[in-house]
Write a protein that binds this DNA or RNA. Structure first.
Lengths: 224, 224
DNA sequence: CGCATAGTTCGTTCCTCATCGAAGCGTTCT
DNA sequence: AGAACGCTTCGATGAGGAACGAACTATGCG
């Protein structure tokens, strides 16, 4: 009955679980591809595409086509602010969850994020690689350092194998609120971790469980 | 897939047009009854009751029972802030409507708000009544002034006829962002306006159209 | 008590919209 | 060119939920 801006239209866009997950994933500021968002939301690609279309039409998203990839990002700080506000209310009225406590401890420590490792372990690893100057952090971007090629070759990872995708990318970690390493290099490292059987994936979950010796090996290689 | 506060749940509560209208109506800060909100949202009472139940369960509303009335209000400033944020986005991305222009001119000038008059005419009327000290504004409340009884009696309105409901109440006008007069007195005045045929109601709309002589009469009685 | 008003609950109907498989485009790599 | 990949469009299916009428509870009035 009332006139005025169509707040129901906007709110209902955020009101779908799949779309909410996508928006949440984009809150890190990094633009993501449709496939990544589909995984993030837990829906198929066609479904994700449909959702993205609606979010675009609603003006909540922008898109940048790069080759055959389409990078979706939040339309602006105002949209991000709105999501923050909604999150605040949801937190306030939501089930009084125990303080940052170990809701799902394993997930906080290490988990899969698309095709690479996320969680405390992943954040620590990126920190260490940057500290050792193997990787160079430059604002939003991450680049290979001078010793990167030899450093990773020693571990059995060729940083130049799949040049199609960006080799490195920063990806914001929801549990730690800091970045971890994505891109082909991040994917290769996760692949190695699983191939060496340092860790196994929890069934039907994104959690990654390290075995005690596996953890030692990982720390020796990436955190020393 | 992502953990975290259930933002979709909250957003979907706001995402229904009926509920959005209710929340919008409550943004004025005045608590309203279920019937008033049903009218505001343009739905039947049972439907409104169901919506209110959901908003309560979601923690967005509080309720205060007074006799057989139940006054619903926003749960707090955080909720109001969230609605503001959503409204901001909706305004920004919405159809670039012409500046406050006469979207529906008649509605801005005068319309029905539940059982009383709203719009520019109503706001002007309340201003004038307060200026003449017939009514006394005291913060949120409006009370009868010393000359109120005689003043309204002269027009043929008995301010003491229906003591069940508050005689006066402030109601925020969405188009002008200022208050107009609600309560039994507000209702009685609207009744008189229609009874005297100073104005007629637009079919299927809340607009109230004054005839030229009717407008003069109204201005003589209430705006002089 | 009986009647009126305010609100909720129940049950049914109906429609929107999320979902996915299959197929269709455009890009990139070999 | 052909194959692989990223993404969108189309069509069919299905479930959730918004809507209202009717019946029920609760409060107030005479």
């Amino acid at each position: 009955m009332r006139e005025g801006p169509d707040i129901a239209r906007i709110a209902s866009l955020v009101g779908d679980p799949a779309r909410a997950n996508m928006l949440n994933a984009l809150m890190g500021g990094t633009a993501l591809t449709a496939s990544e968002l589909a995984l993030e939301a837990g829906v198929s690609l066609p479904t994700a595409s449909s959702h993205l279309g609606k979010l675009m039409e609603g003006g909540l998203l922008t898109v940048a086509s790069q080759g055959r990839h389409r990078y979706y990002g939040l339309a602006g700080p105002q949209v991000a602010g709105m999501i923050e506000a909604i999150t605040g209310v949801a937190e306030a009225v939501g089930p009084k969850r125990v303080r940052p406590g170990p809701r799902d401890g394993a997930m906080r420590v290490a988990r899969v994020c698309y095709d690479h490792l996320a969680g405390e372990q992943a954040v620590a690893m990126l920190d260490r690689l940057v500290a050792k100057n193997v990787l160079v952090r430059d604002e939003q971007e991450i680049r290979l350092g001078p010793s990167a090629a030899s450093h990773f070759a020693a571990i059995g990872i060729d940083v130049y194998t799949k040049p199609r995708r960006p080799v490195c990318r920063a990806c914001l970690d929801w549990s730690v609120r800091r970045s971890h390493l994505a891109g082909t290099l991040g994917a290769a490292i996760l692949e190695k971790i699983l191939a060496e059987k340092w860790a196994r994936r929890e069934k039907d979950s994104r959690a990654v469980i390290f075995s005690p010796p596996g953890r030692q090996a990982f720390e020796r290689v990436f955190l020393s």
